[in-house]
Amino acid sequence: MERQEWNKIFFIRSVKEYDVTDNPCCVIHILCRRGSMSFRFQNVHYNIAAGDYVILTNMSLASGFSESDDYEGITMGLSEPFVLSIAIRNNYGIIGHLSLLQNPVMKLSPPDFRKCSSDMERLRERLADKTHLFREEMLGYLLMAHILDLYDIHARGQAPRPVPERTAKLLQQFVDMLYGGEYITHRDVPYYASRLCVTPHYLSEICRKASGKPATYWIDRFTLHEIANLLCQKELTLTDIADRLHFSSVSYFSRYVKKQTGLYPTAYRNNLWKKSGE
């Protein structure tokens, strides 16, 4: 099938066709219909099979995509601003977002698989209709219905964690700061709490209530992902990496990596190279 696209929604044959430099603010949805696929996200290796639904909230955190010869799936890209403009009526979005940063794969039951497949096929079909006078509104409502289906599927598999509107806004601002790279120079909770005008304890508590993890977990998660990316660049020494991430010394950098991964940087680097096939 030919690539179908609009500046807010697009469908591609394979996620390997996606260029993050062309579409830096997109969320990628993948429904595996047949065969299998593997990839790395946040330095964790995933294998998916038929009936799995993947939501990659930030493609810069994903790599190493590989598909089986019999793989068949639907890959949909969504403009993040367009998704936000739909204004889903509840605050479950930030809960789901944090959860998907921990594990981007949802295992679908047969009824949920049929529902998601139907939702995505309907969106793809209507995307091709460029003569519709209310195309943007029509696609927006179809997408909203699909997102609410995904919220329902995800929430049924999670312990309920209601989040007030103010809390959801604070969490979104915190996550946006991490996506913006502020963990490169700041890895302490008080810094983020100060920027958000709350106490460090309050920030950690709302993170824990929404995701089951404290604020430090998310700071370390983003930091470790960047460390892994830099360790994969053979030309960079440990001193180079420690300097880029503003660690006070190589020894402190080494202790940090050991604490997070159980391995010192050189051993962790060797493991990453083995997994990437280098």
Score class of each variant (00 low, 15 high):
1 M>N: 11
5 E>D: 07
6 W>T: 15
6 W>P: 00
7 N>K: 08
7 N>V: 11
10 F>A: 12
11 F>I: 01
14 S>P: 03
19 D>W: 06
20 V>A: 07
20 V>I: 12
23 N>K: 14
26 C>S: 14
26 C>A: 13
27 V>F: 00
30 I>P: 01
37 M>T: 04
37 M>N: 05
38 S>I: 10
38 S>A: 15
40 R>Q: 10
45 H>F: 10
46 Y>I: 02
47 N>H: 08
50 A>V: 11
50 A>D: 02
51 G>C: 01
52 D>A: 02
55 I>C: 08
57 T>C: 12
58 N>K: 15
62 A>P: 14
62 A>L: 08
64 G>T: 05
65 F>R: 01
70 D>P: 00
71 Y>I: 00
74 I>E: 02
75 T>R: 02
75 T>L: 02
77 G>A: 11
78 L>R: 01
81 P>V: 14
82 F>A: 05
85 S>R: 03
89 R>Y: 13
92 Y>V: 06
96 G>V: 04
97 H>E: 07
99 S>C: 08
103 N>R: 07
103 N>E: 13
104 P>Y: 02
105 V>C: 11
106 M>K: 05
108 L>A: 07
111 P>S: 07
111 P>L: 02
114 R>T: 13
121 E>S: 11
121 E>M: 13
122 R>D: 12
123 L>I: 15
124 R>Y: 03
125 E>T: 10
125 E>L: 07
126 R>T: 07
128 A>F: 03
130 K>F: 14
130 K>N: 13
131 T>C: 03
133 L>V: 08
134 F>I: 09
137 E>G: 02
138 M>S: 02
139 L>P: 09
141 Y>L: 12
144 M>A: 15
144 M>D: 01
144 M>L: 11
146 H>C: 10
146 H>V: 01
147 I>K: 00
148 L>W: 00
148 L>N: 10
154 H>T: 10
154 H>A: 07
156 R>T: 09
157 G>H: 12
158 Q>E: 13
158 Q>P: 02
160 P>Q: 15
162 P>C: 15
165 E>I: 11
168 A>T: 09
168 A>P: 14
169 K>W: 10
170 L>C: 07
170 L>H: 06
171 L>H: 00
171 L>G: 00
171 L>E: 04
173 Q>Y: 12
175 V>S: 11
177 M>G: 10
186 H>F: 07
188 D>H: 06
191 Y>H: 14
195 R>G: 11
197 C>Y: 05
198 V>R: 06
200 P>N: 08
202 Y>F: 13
203 L>T: 06
205 E>D: 15
207 C>Y: 03
216 T>E: 15
216 T>Q: 15
223 T>L: 15
224 L>A: 03
224 L>W: 00
225 H>F: 05
225 H>I: 06
228 A>H: 05
232 C>M: 12
239 T>L: 06
243 D>Q: 14
243 D>Y: 08
244 R>T: 09
244 R>P: 05
246 H>V: 04
248 S>V: 15
251 S>V: 13
252 Y>C: 09
252 Y>W: 07
252 Y>D: 09
254 S>D: 10
254 S>K: 01
255 R>Y: 05
256 Y>R: 07
260 Q>K: 10
260 Q>V: 08
264 Y>E: 08
265 P>H: 02
266 T>R: 09
268 Y>K: 03
269 R>Q: 08
270 N>H: 14
271 N>T: 02
272 L>S: 03
273 W>Q: 13
278 E>G: 04
278 E>W: 09
278 E>N: 05
